[in-house]
């Protein structure tokens, strides 16, 4: 029995810590950043700034039109050029001459407003998660998430790291996973192809899922992101 299993068992024995935040605050009074801001301290208007505005699910259009739209969406996937982890290193070969996914109508976009695919490149640290959530919320629907690398699935080799989250689908909905460390660019392309199929079939409704289960996602996000104080983005 390894140490880890022992910890696991000890965790099982005791009930799920419902209020981790308060626990932490009382137990560890190490450093409280004066800038630290929890969401509850914000006014409604400010919460809007911090993208806490509640998204609403959007119904798909009338059948054939939606089909046509889906065709267009699947053939014009714009990737948000946000390398969130080491998987990002395979994004560059993808968009350059060797693999050239522009043939699939894909291209990297520099701003989340214009992008429709978010490629999560592996492990996500808490600090990045904040930006990911924000970028994801800034993206305009329908938006899709492709998570590559094993870290995005179950924590990967950083399973015992204090600073990386272990599964991305607790925080934003993920349409397609590609495993590997790194997955080869071809595997990532296969992931995108799968995504295209899903879009064409009208199954990639992650945006609406996020809107419907918004409270659940937000609760998960708040559980790990202790400090909601984004660096002063103010637009």
């Amino acid at each position: 029995m390894t140490d880890i299993d022992k910890i696991h068992d000890s965790l099982e024995a005791k009930p799920e810590p419902a209020d981790t935040e308060t626990n932490n605050n009382t137990e560890r009074e190490w450093r409280k950043d004066e800038k630290t801001l929890t969401n509850s301290e914000l006014s409604l208007e400010e919460q809007d700034w911090f993208c806490d505005a509640r998204p609403q699910p959007v119904k798909p259009a009338w059948g054939p039109i939606e089909k046509f739209y889906n065709w267009a969406r699947s053939h014009s996937l714009w990737i948000l050029a946000f390398g969130t982890g080491c998987g990002a290193i395979e994004l560059r070969p993808l968009v350059t001459a060797r693999y050239d996914i522009s043939r699939l109508g894909m291209q990297p976009r520099p701003t989340p407003r214009q992008a429709s695919v978010f490629m999560i490149g592996g492990y996500v640290s808490i600090k990045t998660l904040k930006r990911i959530v924000r970028s994801y919320e800034q993206m305009q629907g329908p938006k899709f998430v492709v998570a590559v690398c094993s870290c995005a699935i179950n924590g990967g080799m950083y399973w015992d790291s204090y600073n990386t989250i272990k599964r991305i689908d607790h925080y934003i909905p993920v349409d397609v996973y590609v495993t590997g460390c790194m997955p080869r660019p071809e595997a990532v392309i296969a992931g995108f192809t799968k995504l295209k199929e899903l879009i064409m079939a009208g199954k990639a409704e992650g945006q609406n899922l996020y809107a419907e289960k918004f409270d659940w996602y937000k609760a998960n996000q708040k559980q790990v992101i202790k400090d909601w104080n984004m660096p002063d983005y103010n637009w």
Partner: peptide, 30 residues
């Protein structure tokens, strides 16, 4: 969701039963 493909498991396998293929594509809907 955890593997890092370092192949240490293959290297240490005392019977030599564990190997790796050259397949690399596994895509799942999430």
């Amino acid at each position: 969701g955890l593997c890092c493909w370092c192949a240490l498991c293959v290297d240490i396998c005392p019977t030599g039963s564990l190997t790796m293929s050259n397949a690399y594509t596994w895509v799942e809907e999430g």
